[in-house]
Design a protein around this nucleic acid. Structure first.
Length: 179
DNA sequence: TCCGTGACGGTTGAA
DNA sequence: CCTTCAACCGTCACG
């Protein structure tokens, strides 16, 4: 059985501060907004944490992210990175390297094409190959920089303006609907 | 007391 | 359609 007051749906959980959250899922947008609003208004993080009943670790993280990226939104969850090479191709590259550790990337590319492992047109770039050679890692991760910070309409001036409205009015969320 | 950090248990979604 | 698995989540506890 689960402790605390969980909702019937089993989704809601309550943290040490009495705040509701859903484990594994981002905080709702209006709370993220509020955190940034308050910080912009000069409220200390510890106060924000207590008042909104969000763990200080989370407040810290969200504020930090906002400072770095200018975005209120959580990162992109789930899915896999688009792969430029198939697992099969990666294995071949690995094999070639094992046979001849000093091999150049362009040589590998040539060989992949020559042996018909890949089509000439769709062959991985030399830099892709060298990346695979180097790390055995995945290709580079431009995921974060891809984030488009404009789409939310989260202009700080708007946030501050929100803040100035009387506390009893409903929080004005500028149509920030997650897909 | 405040806050940065990372382990932890969790969910997600393209491949 | 089902499974994988690396990405992110917020909370908690430590320092």
């Amino acid at each position: 059985m689960i402790t605390d007051r969980q909702t019937e749906t089993g989704q809601g959980r309550v943290n040490q501060l009495g705040g509701v959250f859903i484990n594994g899922r981002p905080l709702p947008n209006h709370i993220r907004l509020k955190i940034v609003e308050m910080a912009a208004a000069g409220v200390r993080p510890c106060v924000i944490s207590r008042q909104l009943r969000v763990s200080h670790g989370c407040v810290s993280k969200i504020l930090n992210r906002y400072q770095e990226t200018g975005s209120i939104r959580p990162g992109v969850i789930g899915g896999s990175k688009p792969k430029v090479t198939t697992p099969d191709v990666e294995k071949r590259i690995d094999d070639y390297k094992k046979e001849n550790p000093g091999v150049f990337s362009w040589e590998i590319r040539d060989r992949l094409v020559k042996e018909g492992v890949v089509d000439k047109a769709s062959a991985p770039s030399v830099s892709s190959i060298s990346r695979i050679l180097r790390g055995g890692k995945r290709d580079d991760d431009p995921r974060k920089d891809h984030s488009i910070d404009g789409i939310l309409g989260e202009c700080p001036t708007v946030l501050i303006h929100c803040l100035h409205s009387p506390p009893h009015t409903a929080p004005i969320v500028p149509h920030t609907l997650p897909p």
